[in-house]
Design a protein around this nucleic acid. Structure first.
Length: 862
DNA sequence: GCAAGGTC
């Protein structure tokens, strides 16, 4: 029997589609990556009995990146990224092993049906899947067609079965347009990001952002926030005047009337109207009206609307809201939360999900009534062909979900109930008055039937006093006539909800990526989230956007993306050649880039106003090994040391504290060592600022401290302080922290393992000898006589932390020691690790010429 | 270390 291999875009869809096509009779098992499942059933295909194998990928299989050597920032000129730098496709998520998974499952199959989402990205993934699977599938005989594309617009029985009955072919042009987008985004984004970052980070010490990124989505997103900021800054309040009239309605009630001119900006004119109207004693009714109006029930919920409400009403950021929604989805409480669709398919079972809510403590009454009286069809929304609107799938209580998950779930559920409820109906009454020549109105609303506002009380029409019944010609006595002086107010900072709306309107990002872009501009320190989830741009954000405006406004305008997308659509429609469009667009941006680089002084002028030059930032900390002057420690991200005399910058480990290390110096380069520490309970180690940036030995990499240094004799090195192989990670070595007394610690130089030992010991040293049993270095421990925990009141002991029975009680490594390879049993695995490794003779010095004097010195030393 | 787009 032949086999048909079928692939969907995500595991949930593979399952739903297989269920529909197999009419529920399928057998399922997890794939080798643990994320995707395979669903099997038998049926017929092109008129023959076959076995179907339905599975999925998890989004894109591949991602685009530069060849490795073009990812070295200091070695590659960003301008090269526009054309010279070659790109390669890498597995998007190596942990998922997607290519291997597809090959294992697809091997020996005869046909493939692609069920990826029906958008351009999905079409592109089709070809990623084919690239992986075609080589291992059975070869076609006699030109028989083996590759099929299913096109569907919703996950309903009819749609899926129709798609299966009318299989087509994957669209290569659409896929190519995505390839082009990927390459453009990568080349443009990385070139500008690297240039900006290096340029400004090399100049200013207090930028407080380790990355000054640029992107066709994130930059316009920031642009919206700064645009609002500029409006606020340039706002000049204007004074205006309003007439306000009060008339007596009943004995004890007055009506407030609104002036039909609303307001005037000229005091004298306002005064004139006041003078005229003040002469009148009565207001005359000119007209009355009573209209029944409706407030529409909401459209069914899609992702973007959910994110807007989560931000504006629940105070939850888009990223957090999305994570919460995903959890609710995987736990079966709601339907798939990433959808653009606001329209339920005709045959969607609305009553099922509603019945689930019929006994809910909060809304049972409303739901029961709806079920009894019949639900209202949801309004006609937009069908994007992806997933049904976000729908609660099973009832949940506050206690069950708790916190934000509950609040989001409650909103989603109330929204769903509202979409099948009736509109809110109310009566709007208006009375038009004339006072002298001027007209005034007064209106009021009375609810006729609350409809959906019952379940969404925050949407309800506020109760207002009834207007008096009257008719044309009636008069009311004026009780007060006055002129109010007011001022126009500046707009407030953009709310996240407004930003989402703007992004959606301009096509910046997608439902899935909008939260990511907003998160990016927060993390890069371009904007901060203020109360009410308003986004306030930082100095850095403002300077960047103003700089782009000054040099090339297109870099920040939202049109930049849509212009490129127009070109990409031409590729998708087969009207333009992929290579030509790509080459042409890259050429334009390359010119823009060069112009930007040449004009960067314009942005720099703005930077100077807000930020301080490197040389003027930070406080003196440690001495430079070259000029022996003090270097300054710059704490703002990315923290580093700067020698203003040599004009050199040395990066430091991030997220911790840096102190001078007793003015001790590195024997290789004479730089003063600094001590990095992750906090009082964490680990700390000394490092040489020079070696950290320019590894002195061949077997060392950038970013290594003394605890990884293979210097054979330096008292701070791994060779001298290393104890033994780490108890948890594969490659680390436990190193004595010489600064940790009296609460002594050994810490792994790779992972986060920290072990406390020998509390209150007076001195702990690493001895020259190693343990005969496990090869770990012996420790030489001295206690004060009064405090010694050693047997027989001894004050000194030399032994192995892993094996010595005397030390067992003094080392908090208990669980750790039990994990040590020595005690795990097994035939002497991983020989030659640990201390022996630290002491291993170093490899021969590099035969290549060292690149500078310091490296020459280091090489010589070895 | 960089983009944006899928999804886990």
């Amino acid at each position: 029997m032949k086999t048909v291999f079928m692939v969907a875009e995500k595991p949930s869809l593979a399952q739903s589609i297989a269920k529909i096509l197999s009419r529920g009779s399928m057998s399922s098992h997890k794939g080798l990556n643990g994320a995707c499942s395979v669903h099997e059933y038998t049926g017929t295909f092109t008129g023959q009995p076959v076995r179907f194998k339905m599975t999925s990928v998890c989004g894109h299989v591949m991602t685009l990146d530069f060849l490795g050597k073009y990812n070295k920032w200091d070695k590659v000129d960003p301008a090269e990224l526009f054309s010279q730098a070659p790109t390669e496709k890498k597995e998007a998520n190596p942990k998922l092993n997607m290519v291997k998974f597809l090959q294992v499952e697809g091997r020996g199959c005869d046909y493939i049906v692609l069920w990826l989402d029906c958008d351009k990205e999905g079409e592109n993934i089709c070809f990623e899947v084919l690239d992986a699977v075609l080589p291992v599938m059975n070869k076609a005989h006699g030109g028989e067609k083996t590759v099929f594309r299913a096109r569907f617009s919703s996950i309903t029985d009819t749609d899926i079965c129709n798609a299966m009955a009318r299989l087509g072919e994957p669209d290569h042009n659409e896929a190519l347009s995505v390839d082009a987008r990927q390459e453009l985004d990568l080349r443009i984004g990385c070139a500008f990001t690297r240039f900006q970052t290096k340029y400004f980070q090399g100049k200013y010490g207090d930028l407080d952002s380790s990355l000054i990124s640029f992107g066709p989505c994130q930059t316009p997103t920031l642009g919206f926030c700064v645009e609002r900021h500029d409006k606020i800054q340039s706002f000049k309040p204007e004074t205006y005047w309003v007439l306000q009239a009060k008339v007596n309605a009943d004995k004890d009630r007055t009506l407030l009337l609104d002036w039909d001119r609303v307001r005037v900006f000229d005091r004298e004119i306002a005064q004139m109207f006041l003078n005229i109207t003040k002469m009148e004693k009565e207001a005359q009714v000119e007209a009355t009206s009573r209209k029944e109006k409706a407030k529409q029930r909401p459209l069914a919920l899609n992702t973007v609307e959910m994110l807007r409400v989560a931000s504006s009403s629940l105070g939850m950021g888009p990223q957090h809201a999305m994570q919460t929604a995903e959890r609710l989805y995987t736990q079966g409480y709601i339907s798939y939360p990433r959808t653009e669709t606001t329209h339920y398919p005709e045959n969607f079972d609305l009553k099922g999900p509603l019945r689930q809510q019929a006994n809910h403590p909060y809304w049972a009454d409303t739901v029961k009534q709806l079920l009894a009286e019949g639900i209202n069809r949801p309004r006609k929304g937009h069908d994007a062909g992806d997933h049904p609107p976000i729908t609660p799938m099973k009832a949940a209580t506050e206690a069950e979900l708790g916190g934000d998950a509950w609040r989001l779930y409650e909103y989603i559920t109330r929204h769903f109930i509202a979409t099948v409820s009736h509109d809110c109906k109310y009566l709007q009454s208006t009375i038009t008055f004339r006072i002298g020549p001027e007209h005034f109105t007064c209106s009021g609303k009375t609810v006729i039937s609350p409809g959906f506002t019952e379940i969404m009380p925050w949407q309800s029409v506020p109760p207002e006093d009834n207007l008096p019944t009257c008719q044309r010609g009636d008069t009311f006595a004026i009780s007060e006539m006055k002129m109010l002086e007011k001022q126009t107010n500046p707009p407030d900072y953009l709310t996240e909800a407004e930003l989402i709306t703007l992004m959606e309107k301009h096509g910046i990002g997608t439902d899935a990526s909008i939260p990511v872009h907003i998160n990016n501009i927060c993390q890069r320190n371009y904007v901060t989230v203020e109360s009410g989830r308003r986004l306030k741009p930082t100095n850095l954000g403002i300077v960047l956007v103003h700089g782009y405006y000054k040099i090339d406004a297109e870099l920040v305008l939202p049109t930049i993306r849509s212009a490129v997308e127009k070109q990409l659509n031409l590729i998708a429609q087969g009207k333009a050649d992929y290579r030509q469009v790509l080459g042409h667009t890259l050429d334009i941006f390359k010119r823009k880039f060069h112009y930007f680089v040449d004009s960067i002084a314009g942005m720099d002028e703005l930077m100077e106003v807000s930020f301080s030059p490197l040389a003027a930032t930070g406080k003196p900390l440690s001495r430079c090994g070259k000029c022996h002057r003090f270097m300054k420690y710059i704490q703002a991200k990315p923290s580093r040391l700067h020698c203003s005399h040599c004009d050199e910058t040395y990066t430091l480990p991030q997220n911790g504290t840096i102190k001078l290390y007793k003015e001790l110096r590195c024997p290789l380069d004479d730089f003063e060592l600094v001590l990095w520490s992750s906090g009082s309970r964490g680990k700390s180690y000394p490092l040489c600022p020079y070696c950290y940036n320019h590894p002195p030995f061949r077997d060392m990499k950038k970013g290594m401290g003394c605890n990884e240094c293979t210097h054979p004799t330096c008292q701070h090195s791994l060779s001298m302080l290393g104890v033994g192989q780490c108890v948890e990670c594969e490659s680390g070595v436990l190193v004595l922290d010489p600064t940790s007394g009296p609460k002594w610690k050994v810490a792994c130089n790779r992972c986060n393992v920290v072990a406390h030992c020998f509390e209150n010991a007076h001195r702990v040293r690493v001895a020259a000898d190693t343990c005969g049993a496990c090869e770990a270095a012996l420790l030489d421990v001295d206690f004060n006589k009064a405090k010694s925990p050693l047997p027989g009141g001894e004050t000194q002991h030399i032994g192995c932390v892993f094996c010595d029975p005397v030390f067992q009680e003094l080392v908090e490594l208990k669980h750790a020691a039990a994990c040590h390879p020595m005690h795990r049993g097994g035939p002497g695995r991983r020989q030659g690790r640990g201390r022996a490794r630290g002491r291993r003779p170093l490899g021969k010095p590099s035969s290549r010429r060292p690149k500078d004097k310091m490296s020459a010195l280091a090489a010589y030393f070895v």
